[in-house]
Design a binder for these strands. Structure first.
Lengths: 245, 245
DNA sequence: CATCCGAGTGAACGCCGTTTACTATTGCTA
DNA sequence: TAGCAATAGTAAACGGCGTTCACTCGGATG
């Protein structure tokens, strides 16, 4: 608990510099441009020196992915805390913050939410349940979500069927949030998948064949989801006359 | 138009063998295991020989991606044609066929629907509007979808706002399907994004933190979407007593 | 029969991750 | 303060990669 020694300061500085270099390469050239040799070159070092700080390139990428998860989560939580007290407004702000971060950082979003990269796979499997940053990120939405749905009647189609078919298969989620009603859990996962699908399709370019400005579709979908969850708050999004640039 | 010469037969056979080898490597080791040298090794050749058939590894991967798009589209269209005449049943069969193909062929799904791979990016941008296999695949769902929504009252929240905010940004979609009402177009894209999001999250492992058996969530979501689109058909999916393994 | 073209090879270049042996420097300790 | 041990870094090497180039050889073509 004492002040870090000089050695440790230099070490953490080097780790940061390596990760910064990796991220710079990720942003400019995609994941395949991230190489130990290129990072070392930018630092004026040789590639094997990096093995003093990371056991492999995959481990480095896994560490970078963890940082990015935390950065995105922090961005979303900041938006949540800056929004008003209404759960609906908080959720809107969080969803918009997530899409904004993804659009502004497509390479980073791709690394943590795209198709699995070898290093990230191991990272994801290693801490699959307890402290996985992805789970913590998703869970950040859970608070405002349950607050929004509390008392409201969810439009969940055939409720008893949902109970019957889904209740037994939410073990990982209930392990962390056991007090969640099944229909709320379903509605949350459904909304989460809709949010993810829309943002991922936009970032990955799978929407260009249909949509000009993905933000318009995103806002429309956001309004639809909110109206479905809490009909009395449906006016919070998409004011009919709002001029969107 | 005449019969292909011997030369051409040998050539197309070689192209097929190369693609088959590439796919085998893709399935067993992921996209990063696909290398010209490995393909050539499996064929008893040397790597430069492949340049007689493809100008680069990226071009080979782009060609493979095109084949996979066609294969998936064929799978979905077969399911559509095998289903009964009801549009709801056709849509259900198509969605299930897509998920099934994705789950059974995760590497292939990742290649065409995951984060962009360099070769696939160029491929996607090259024919972005006219004949892009992805667009043709999405369009295969459009027929049953409009048939289902014809006459039904869509639950699209604030309709005039949807019109106002979205109508101007669907140019790429309307370029191919100009007669689509805006709210139907929105509902289609929304459903498409929900389907994609759920399947992609399952295949990419982004659902493991919450769900045990993704199929249960998928079926629940399918029932919800159908109920939202055509309330009178909501009984077609998830019969309350159905035992789903 | 002569010619040409296409398929394929071998060597090479410059990348890459990773390992090994080695050096220099730092920090702790007797 | 002298000496030791841990640490950071290097150089060289191995195997693999995409790609290019010069070259050979055999079948199709005139």
């Amino acid at each position: 608990m004492s002040a870090p020694s000089r050695r440790e300061r230099l070490r953490t500085a080097a780790v940061s510099e390596i990760k910064d270099g990796a991220r710079r390469l990720l942003v400019t050239g995609g994941i395949e441009a991230v190489s130990l040799r290129a990072i070392a070159r930018d630092m004026g070092m040789t590639a094997p020196a990096i093995y003093r700080y990371f056991p492999s390139l995959e481990a480095l990428i896994a560490g970078l992915a963890g940082d990015l998860y935390d950065e995105l989560r922090h961005t979303v939580e900041t938006a949540r805390d800056a929004a008003g007290p209404e759960p609906a407004g908080k959720l809107l702000a969080m969803c918009r913050a997530m899409r904004r971060w993804a659009v502004e950082h497509p390479a980073e979003f791709t690394l943590i939410f795209g198709s699995p990269v070898p290093g990230v796979v191991a990272f994801a499997e290693q801490c699959a349940d307890a402290d996985h940053p992805g789970a913590r990120f998703g869970a950040a939405f859970l608070g405002p979500f349950v607050a929004l749905t509390r008392g409201a009647t969810l439009r969940v189609p055939p409720p008893e069927a949902v109970q019957q078919h889904l209740a037994g298969h939410l073990a990982p989620l209930f392990a962390r949030h056991g007090d969640l009603p099944v229909e709320v859990a379903y509605a949350f996962l459904s909304a989460w998948a809709r949010l993810y699908g829309l943002v991922a399709m936009e970032v990955f370019g799978h929407l260009a064949w249909a949509v000009d400005d993905p933000e318009a579709l995103f806002e429309t979908e956001l309004a639809a989801m909110l109206a479905q969850l809490a009909p009395d708050h449906s006016g919070d999004a998409l004011p009919p006359g709002a001029a969107r640039h």
